[in-house]
């Protein structure tokens, strides 16, 4: 025999259903009391949930991972691919930033010197197995290049166009052992011939045995007739050492190139020499020495050293910048 079919039970059920519908209506109408009750409940339950979350989230994640094993794997694979793409993009971006920096330097140099240039990208470095120092750039006859054109980098001379092909050109670097360029010393205008040595250093041979060369002298290209193969005024390098050559016919010096030939990515080929010789306009500015802070300590002498020390346990210290780096003590 079933129980509960009487009027009292039905009345109770109807009352509860009506109450529920009333609550639904109130909530849907946005009555603040109902909303406040919900917020209050959630405020009370919040701490319990946070505690449970820290305790059970590893278990929860485990079940979730097991349940979504296939999806997780696919997601990991997708993220790995995305990560790889982002890394590639980042490397490309860094590469482009470096190339932009080089291009700006090259254009600055060309603009200051008044050279008409065509910029190019280095697409290949010559192999060391051939014992020649060369690079290949991505323009050739299509950019109206011809042999014996000067090639510039952001810091100065890079080399000279050796061969021109349809869409590429071979550049002989200034470090090539067969590379020779006439140079002059900025300021004194004394002239000499620079010869590549296969490294980032070259040998300068002065034409006049009475010439005076010293470390730190800046060398610029003298320039050739009609600007080929070298336009005048291009920075080449700086003298690093002058060996003692007593009794030798000519003065020799070791020179370091301005251009870092291993990292050159953008170059400019001079297609037209400047109208006027830029002379020493392209001499790079000397690096500013880093200021070294100095401190001068003034000690106040007492009647006797012991008494003074006893009377004034801490000496008076006055910081004062001086041009020397050695602390000076005045008594």
């Amino acid at each position: 025999m079933r129980y509960g079919g009487d009027n009292r039970s039905r009345l109770l059920l109807v009352t509860l259903i009506v109450t529920s519908l009333f609550l639904i209506t109130l909530d849907l109408r946005g009555v603040s009391l109902i909303t406040g009750l919900r917020h209050g409940t959630q405020s009370v339950l919040g701490p319990f949930q946070r505690a449970a979350n820290s305790a059970f989230s590893p278990i929860g994640n485990f079940f979730s991972d097991v349940a979504h094993l296939g999806r997780t794997r696919a997601e990991i694979k997708s993220l790995e691919t995305q990560n790889s793409q982002l890394r590639t993009t980042l490397i490309e971006r860094k590469n482009i930033e470096s190339q932009i920096k080089q291009l700006k330097s090259v254009l600055n140099l060309s603009g200051t010197g008044g050279y008409k240039v065509v910029s190019a990208k280095v697409i290949s470095q010559g192999t060391s197995a051939s014992f020649s120092q060369s690079i290949t750039i991505d323009i050739g006859r299509n950019a109206h290049l011809t042999r014996d054109m000067t090639v510039l980098g952001g810091d100065g001379l890079v080399g000279v166009v050796k061969e021109v092909y349809a869409s590429t050109s071979l550049i002989m670097l200034e470090s090539d052992p067969s590379f020779r360029v006439g140079v002059r010393i900025a300021g004194s205008q004394e002239i000499g011939i620079l010869t590549g040595q296969g490294t980032d250093r070259a040998i300068l041979q002065m034409l006049d045995s009475q010439s005076t060369v010293k470390a730190g002298d800046v060398l610029l290209a003298r320039g050739s007739a009609a600007g080929k193969p070298f336009v005048p005024g291009v920075p080449v390098g700086t003298v690093t050492s002058v060996p003692n050559s007593a009794g030798s016919v000519s003065q020799l010096a070791e020179v370091q190139f301005f251009t870092h030939l291993h990292s050159v990515g953008i170059v400019a080929v001079v297609v037209s020499p400047p109208i006027t010789d830029p002379r020493d306009a392209l001499v790079p500015p000397k690096p500013m020495p880093t200021p070294v802070p100095t401190v001068t300590i003034f000690l106040t002498p007492g009647a006797t050293p012991a008494a003074t020390l006893g009377a004034t346990p801490a000496p008076s210290v006055t910081p004062k910048p001086l041009p020397t780096s050695t602390p000076t003590t005045k008594k």
């Binding site: 949930q49 059970f56 079940f63 979730s64 349940a67």
Partner: peptide, 9 residues
């Protein structure tokens, strides 16, 4: 709310 809801079954 503390245990079952935290375990993503």
């Amino acid at each position: 709310i503390m245990i079952i809801d935290e375990v993503h079954l």
